[in-house]
């Protein structure tokens, strides 16, 4: 199982590792504290969290996600209204101003991993590619923690 994930990860990273042209800004993006929760099977959507930091002088726009793990990865946001009702919906593009960062964390934004193709197993990692408006991409290895995990530090 682990080797299958690794093989897919490798194949995928080779694929996304092809030279990306006209990168302006996205090469200054750093992803920190990425983590995800293990899944029960593949029927339920998964979620991944991280901090996306823009270390460069120009704003950078995150336009989408890709991963071999899920057919429909997308950034969603949870909002809770004055009556305590929580709802969730797609965020769309996220522009990160120069020198700032965007946090994907429980109860706020998260990488929603819809249509899981592979069960998310605690202790493994999976590659998640961030696609930017300038055509640049960044692939990070996301560690999978337990279902009851609360954050990147355990």
């Amino acid at each position: 199982m682990k080797s299958t994930v690794a093989a897919i990860a490798l194949a995928f990273s080779v694929f996304v590792g092809l030279p990306t042209t006209s990168s302006a800004g996205s090469e200054d993006i750093v992803v920190e504290d990425a983590w995800a929760r293990a899944s029960i099977g593949t029927n339920r959507p998964g979620a991944a969290y991280m901090t996306v930091r823009n270390t460069g002088p120009d704003p950078v726009t995150l336009v989408g996600l890709e991963t071999p793990l899920a057919m429909m990865p997308d950034i969603h946001e949870t909002t809770t209204d004055a009556n305590g009702v929580s709802s969730m919906g797609p965020v769309g593009e996220i522009t990160i101003p120069a020198g700032e960062s965007v946090a994907l964390e429980p109860g706020g934004m998260h990488a929603m991993l819809m249509r899981l193709q592979i069960k998310m197993v605690e202790g493994e990692t999976f590659p998640l590619t961030l696609n930017f408006a300038d055509g640049g991409t960044l692939t990070v290895d996301v560690p999978i923690l337990g279902i009851a995990a609360r954050g990147p530090e355990r």
């Binding site: 929580s86 279902i147 609360r150």
Partner: peptide, 8 residues
């Protein structure tokens, strides 16, 4: 089937 609020 709730990926964020419920496990949290």
């Amino acid at each position: 089937y709730c990926p964020d609020v419920c496990p949290t």
